[in-house]
Amino acid sequence: MIPDDLLAVVEHHGQAVARGEDRAVLADFRQDRIGQLVASARPPREMNAAQVLGVEPGPVEGQYTAHIRYTGAGGDEAIFRSRWIFVDDAWRVTNVRNVPDTPPRWPDPEPDQLEAAHWQGLERGELRLQHCPACGTWIWAPRPICPTCHRARPLWEEVEPHGTVFAWTRTWQPFDPVVTGHLPYVVVNVELAGAGGRRLMGVLLDGDRADVRIGTTVHGEFDNGLLRWRLEAA
């Protein structure tokens, strides 16, 4: 059962967003997190139309989920998924994101010279970490010499992109405009199975739906010079 007044509010909200009526839009947001909500989702260019695709109860008690498709003059479109709760005497958005979820991409990582072989490997679809041929130490982050035996210039060895989640966080705060449209996203710190326990960070694909647990197995997927991670099906 969807409250009638909520359906009207969602419809009105969609139209206000499409018309760029900022005051009306902001009034629909939870007032303690307007900045976070405004910068979470990315609209299409020259947005001029909205269509409510559906409103359903959940995912938790007292919450409702709306999907609204926004369309731009040039044909761009974006679907926003907003979660609504009744708070401060009104239906308000408590979080919003673009769906489907896509990973953020830093435009220009400007890698350190020491890391160049790692990034070049990823461009070719290979995961490469430093490994000392003299003493066998796996080295990460990269170092100019082996910290165990001090041999100069450790070699770069290919490693299977496979491991377990050692730590994770789901980030909601728009710390930089480049993550707008991808929030919230999950970053995992992965303990690699084939590199002496060395750990590598990366974005978890489909993190929006993921019930992430430390210890879960993950596989890497190459994505235009970056390594992303995906939970192994249970």
């Binding site: 990973p103 953020p104 830093w106 990582p109 400007e110 890698p111 350190d112 890391e115 990034w119 982050a141 980030t171 710390f175 930089d176 993550v179 991808h182 996203y185 970053v187 960070m201 990366g202 974005v203 970056l226």
Partner: peptide, 12 residues
């Protein structure tokens, strides 16, 4: 935080 962080959305 260098590129080993920033490239993966680890910004702060």
């Amino acid at each position: 935080l260098g590129p080993l962080y920033g490239a993966h959305g680890m910004l702060v």
